[in-house]
């Protein structure tokens, strides 16, 4: 089962370059083209939170270090 996680994007740092959206393996990020930040730039947001697998691809490639990644902690396995 893949890991679960979520990301937080600092929208004031995001410049809408789309690199995180292109590198996301599960397509859970998207560019918000209906709104802008205070610099007048589109910004990326987490569209499908359930799909995030905390692979860190977006945070590695983000030029502006705007992405913070959280991963769900491992639960102790229960025997059935």
């Amino acid at each position: 089962m893949p890991a679960k996680g979520y990301v937080e994007i600092d929208i004031e740092r995001c410049k809408g370059c789309d690199l995180c959206v292109l590198s996301c393996p599960t397509d859970c990020l998207a560019l918000n083209i209906s709104d802008t930040n205070s610099y007048g730039l589109y910004y990326a947001y987490l569209k499908e939170e359930d799909d995030c697998i905390a692979c860190m691809n977006c945070s590695v490639i983000c030029p502006d270090a705007a992405i913070t990644v959280y991963k769900k902690e491992d639960q102790p396995k229960q025997r059935s």
Binding site: K15, D18, P63, D64, K72
Partner: peptide, 28 residues
Amino acid sequence: KGYKLIYKRPQTLTKTRINYCPGCFHST
């Protein structure tokens, strides 16, 4: 709750907003 931090912006970068063009590898 139940999540742990695995990546955040390094403390060695200042808080200034980086003024390179979107997508430029200088900032990376």
